[in-house]
Every structure is written in C-alpha cells, then in structure tokens.
Design a binder for these strands. Sequence first.
DNA 1: AAGACTTTCTTAAAGGATCTAATTTATTGG
DNA 2: CCAATAAATTAGATCCTTTAAGAAAGTCTT
Lengths: 413, 413
Amino acid sequence: MRPSQRPGRARTEDAGASHSAHLRGLNADRVLNVAIDRPGAFTRTELIEATGLSAPTVGIVTMSLIETGVLTDLGTAPSRGGRRPTLMEFNARYAFVAGIDLGPTRTRLALADLRGQQLAMEIVPTPSGVGPEELIADLGVVMRALMTRAEIPHDRLLAIVAGVPGPVDLATGTVLYAPNLKGWTNVPVLRLLQREFHTTVLIENDVNLALLGEHWRGAARGHDTCAFIFVGTGIGSAVLIDGTLHHGHHYMAGEIGFMTMAPEHAGQDYGTRGCLETLAGLDALRGRWPRAAEEPPSRWFAALLEQAQQGDADARAAIDETARLIGMATANVATIVDPSIIVLGGSMFAEPGPLVDAVRLVVRQIARTPFDVAVSALGKEAPLAGCLLVGRMEAQRRVRQRLKKSLNQRSMR
Amino acid sequence: MRPSQRPGRARTEDAGASHSAHLRGLNADRVLNVAIDRPGAFTRTELIEATGLSAPTVGIVTMSLIETGVLTDLGTAPSRGGRRPTLMEFNARYAFVAGIDLGPTRTRLALADLRGQQLAMEIVPTPSGVGPEELIADLGVVMRALMTRAEIPHDRLLAIVAGVPGPVDLATGTVLYAPNLKGWTNVPVLRLLQREFHTTVLIENDVNLALLGEHWRGAARGHDTCAFIFVGTGIGSAVLIDGTLHHGHHYMAGEIGFMTMAPEHAGQDYGTRGCLETLAGLDALRGRWPRAAEEPPSRWFAALLEQAQQGDADARAAIDETARLIGMATANVATIVDPSIIVLGGSMFAEPGPLVDAVRLVVRQIARTPFDVAVSALGKEAPLAGCLLVGRMEAQRRVRQRLKKSLNQRSMR
DNA sequence: AAGACTTTCTTAAAGGATCTAATTTATTGG
DNA sequence: CCAATAAATTAGATCCTTTAAGAAAGTCTT
C-alpha cells in the first residue's frame, strides 16, 4: 500500500468530524471556488446563484472572506433598477507561488499569483560543478531577488514547486536519479528546498510537469486522459488519467526510455542497445545520419531536418527509422492508456516538421484508437507552467485550510 | 471531456446543498461503513469509538438503521461490569446482487449478499445460435430460477453486473465488439438487461472484472496499482490505478492484443501478423509446435507443457518464443503503468508451469522496476468475483442513497 | 444484602449553521 | 411624490451535533 498522491505532506486532516462547524467550511469552499473561477468582479447575488446557497449564508461567508483579504471589496456598482450591488473580486495577490524547473543546462524560475498567473520569470544557467546543497542555495539567491523585483512579500509565498529531470519518490521527496545532473542519486531535494525557502515544497518529475502544463494551457487542454512523450537525448513520458497524474507504485510510471522494442532485444544490456532511448534518442538519430559529423555539433539536427525536407534520401531514412520506433512506442502507450491525445515534446519535437509528420504517419498506421498526436505548445516552458499549476493548487488548498481555521476561531469568541 | 467513471447511470445527485440535513446523511454513512466492515456483531459503544461521533448521534442513527432493516437487533449481550449492551449486526441480506460472466462458451451466474458473499452459482452453456435479445432472455430464466433456489425475493435485487468478452462503452452501456460472440457489435447490453431484470444494471469488460476480482480476493490483494494480462486465443489486459479501474477515453485501455512487437511490423495488417495477439496467442503457440497436430484438439496444450517439462527441445522452443513476446508485453505494460504486481490469467496461464516460469524469466531480464508476476488465483471464477464486487459496491451505494431519503422524510414529519 | 461503582444508553440543554420570510436600503420610473 | 424593483441584512424557525446530566441494568465489595 502506498501513501497518498501528494508529495512530502503530513497526512491529510483527520477526515473531520461532521458537526455543524464543518458545514461552514464546506460552504465557504463553495463560495471560494466560484470566486476563483470568475475572471473579474462579481456581486453577492451572482454568488448566490452560482453556489445555490441562501443569501444570508453567502452574506456571512463573503464578509469573512473580505475580512481575511481573500476577496477584495470594490465598492458599489451602478444600479440596475434597485439598490446598487457591491462588487468584489478574488484577490489573486493574497498569496503567491514559485516554480523552479531545474534543467540539465538551464534552470527556469518563476513567480505566480494565486490564479497561477505568471508575474516574473528568469532563466539562469544551472549551477554546475557543485553539489545539490550549493546548487539550491544559489537558486535561493536568485529566487529571492526575483521576489524582491516582483514586490512579493516573503511571508506570502505559500508554496514552491520544483521540477527535476528524473523520477521522484513523492513519499520521501527524494530524486531517485537524474542522468543529466551529475551526482544526483537519492538526493533529498524536498528537505533541501524546505531548508532554503521555509515554506511548503513540492517536487515532481519534469516530464510530468510538462504534461500538466500542456493540459492546463497548452496542446492538451480539455483532454483529461492524455500522455506526453518527451524525446531528447533521453526519452521519457507522462500519463494523465482523468485529470490526475499517474505516478506508479515505484514512482517510475512512464519511464519508457527502457521500453523493449523487439523480442530479439530481450536479453541485451541497456547501455548498449535494445531499449527505446538508445535506439531512438537524439544520439541514435545522429548516428543514423552519415553526414552528421560534417556539421557543427549545435547545427546537425537543424541541418538534418532541412536536408530531409529537400528530399535527401539519407536524411529521410534516418528520420523514418527513428520515427518508426517513436511512433511504435507512442502507439503502445496509446494501446495501454487509451488517451484522447498524445503530446510530443523535447528537442526532437521542438516544432512541427518532418519528424513529427513521420511519427504521425506511423501512429496512424498502427494505432487502433483515434487519438490526436500534437506537438508541445509550450515547448521548454511547459515544465515551468506545470510547476505554477501545481503550486497554485497547493496554495489554494492551503488558503482554504487557513480559512477554515479562522472561521472556527471566529465562532469561538 | 468524458462522463464519470460509473456506467449507465444518470448524473450523480447535484453535489447537494450543504444544509444541516446533509450532516445526518454523512454521519449515517460513517456508521454504516464501520458496520459493513465489522465481520460480526457489535455494540453502540464500538460504533462510537470507531466513528468518533457522540453517543446521542450514534444512538439516533442506529435506531434509524435498525428500523429500516439495514442493521439487525440481536438483543442484549452479557454484561461486562455494567449495564448490558445491545448487540447488533449488519444485515447482509438486506439486499442482494447478481453477477453474470458471459463467456464465449460458458456463462457463469451468481448471487451474493450485500457483503459480496456468494450465495448461489450456476454454470450454463452460453446460448448459441441466437441473437443478444434471446440470449439474455434465456439467462433471465436461469437467473430467476437461481433466485428462487437461493430464496431471494425478486424486489431485493439491487444491482446486476454483467461481464462481457469485449470492450464496453460505459457511457451508453454498449458492447463495442466481442470477437468471441457471433454478431456482437454495438450491442446495447445495458438496455437489454435492464428490460429483462428491471433493476440497476452495470456492464463491464471481463478482463477488467477479472482484475477487480483478483484485487478483491485473489492474487492482487493489497496491490492498489496493478495489471492483469489475459492470454487465451485472444489477448487483453486491465489496469488498476490507485484501486480504480482505468478505462481510457474510448474505453479501449488495455487492449494490448493490438500491441506492435517490433518496428518491422509497423506497416503490416493485423489479421495476419505483427500484433501481439497473432504472434503470441494460443493459436500462434500451437503453430509453433510441430507435433501439435498429432494431439487431439483438446489435449495439445497439456501435451506441450508435459513435453517441455520432459526436456523436449521443440516444445521448449515454442514456449520460449511465446514467453519472450508475452514477457516483453508484460514489461512494457510495467514500464508505462509501474504496478506493484502483474497477474497473468487466461487458459495459457491456467496454473503455474513452464510457460509462467519462462515469462517470469524474460520479465526479470528486461523490466526495470521490481514488480511481482503472479498467476491468477481465481482462474475462471475471477470475472464473476469481479461482478459481485462491483455489484456489492453499487448496491451499497444505493442503500446509502435510499437511507438518506428515508432520513430526510423522517425529519419531515 | 445494601450501597458503591461500571457500563450502556437516553434525555435535556446549549451552540452553531442553514433556510425562509420579513425588513431595510437605495434606486428607477411613472 | 409614491410604487415597484433589486440588493443586502435581520429575525425567527428548524435541524443537527455536542456536552452534561440522568436513567437503566448490571457487578462487586463490605
């Protein structure tokens, strides 16, 4: 048996005894949820209609919400044939969240408000040649500068979410390993970040975060069951099921880099051949194109795509062979998960082009369910967007919890 | 966007306004849940401790529950130093559920009480040569006879769950197709069964039900994230994620019979070669063993296993080749889902033996996460067990709902 | 055998939350 | 200027839960 979905948090509150005080919390949540979803200002009457609660209840709850600062009173609006309504608005700046996408070479840091709206962003080179502790200390300095720049009071940062390029044990908040970060094996990132930032910390695999980002405001919008396939030097994937990330029992779900692609590879070693990552990653593609060595290391991929589009047979062959493997993996994921869309990302699919077309063709040949194959809409920003989304949810949860406490205290006196 | 998890039911009740009457229902549920989980008799005091509710509340709720018959009053128990407690018991015979596992050749029918305890079971040949309507009418006759035999009043059947050998569209209650049942394409089984039995009907794919059965009281007990791989003439699988079945967007999740096993098969047709079912199903295994034709059709498989165990090279080769494909598929499912166990079932894995051992070996070679590979503990009874489990849950849900209504009416007068 | 103590369950009283209905407040329109 | 309308608050009734006190039915000790 496994602990709950969410990482690094003490067990959720005790299922709560159901006395009357509980009701107030429930109804406050209801009002708050409506408020968060409304884009602009609204009146009490609108809340009454949207929540189905009575006018007195909404009145009391909104009063509390305005008192605590979660809602902002905007004064009266023009009348519509009677007493003028008072407008109010969800105060998205009541609290803030931070996101850190720790990439192999570059690290992205961002701040957002309670709605997840990005307020500030910065890209820095990932500190190299240092251990995890120092790396995180460095990022702490950058983040605090960013907070000052965005005029965010330090005590208003309710959550910080970090994405790391490797599987994460959510129960302990540990990065199991990260092939692209030197010396990152069993690193207790959660603890390190908590020590640095003194607030709620959540960590998550970067591909998972990318999928959440794409689902939130990218290519997978509206697709509650979907998958993300990341292909760069490494290959990984993420699976969303009914709107929830699937992690797996060992937090290794979606690690399709290890997928076996043919029976004859069953007995072979991983480092050498036989698994998807070594057969279809960027390095394999490079190896398949004879002229790759002639191009400068930073240009060969772009050159390959160009050549393929101009009809070069070698380039096409390299692409087709790679696409067949990736398409097969994509179709196999679809066979098991049955998503409505699969999003392709990573540097191999930075933008639509011959590779994507080739993968799509293979998928269409072998897949038995009609799912879309899309290219990441957010690109390298996807994991960061996922961070802010997760942070937003966590922060909203904490606001609700805080609210419940203050409501109970209110009724004490 | 997709409808909810559960099949063929109108939308769940309107999230319920949260006035006081709601509390009573919540607390009644709490008491009921404890009662259902207690194996034998219990006292009010035990309920108070288990639920955390106050004595008066438990008193009122139990009174209602006894009045409606959900709990049975067992009179007083011997004193333990004070006033004698009154014992009571969950009345598992308050309502009943039926399960039908519609197999290609045989159909299993069973009845169970509210705890899912099987009360009667019967195996009949699946009516053949008739259409779905007549088939279901035939089964109706058998089921009603079974109910009479088990002394179950017809109006106490709260739910009936049917398993079918093919994917099911839960939104419409339609069997999309069933290769082993003639003429079963887009059959509205839900509607047909409802017309026959006049009670709540749920339908579900048989492999999914088998997995639920194994999770409930078979090989997958305690494994909330797991998978079932069925290999017979056809090949299919089911996936359980955090205790919930995964269906997929088109209700085709786990249809791994279509899985592509090597890049060179990408362009080939399904009926002929190239997908897991044609490469590794029972027919393929038979084709791989030269001496299969010499054995009688009903015996060849047993003979193959015998020969393999006696060291026959041809038999071993046939088994190894098949096992490598199935092991590869198993490992690939594990790569994506990351379960803690995968259960093998179907006639190819009717019991432990050389085939299972061979699959286990392949899996151990290629899988990167440490999951168990087990053989179905329930065998051909697994889908039926799943029916009763699902039926039990649905029936309990309906009892709770009915209770809520009667509680509300109670407070009216 | 009688009174003290236990255990179980019920009744009484208090507190909190919700709802409907009535009232207040502020404005439009004839 | 007064009626009608719309928004929000106040008053009163209902419901549910809890704590506290009481009743019921024993056991146990002196």
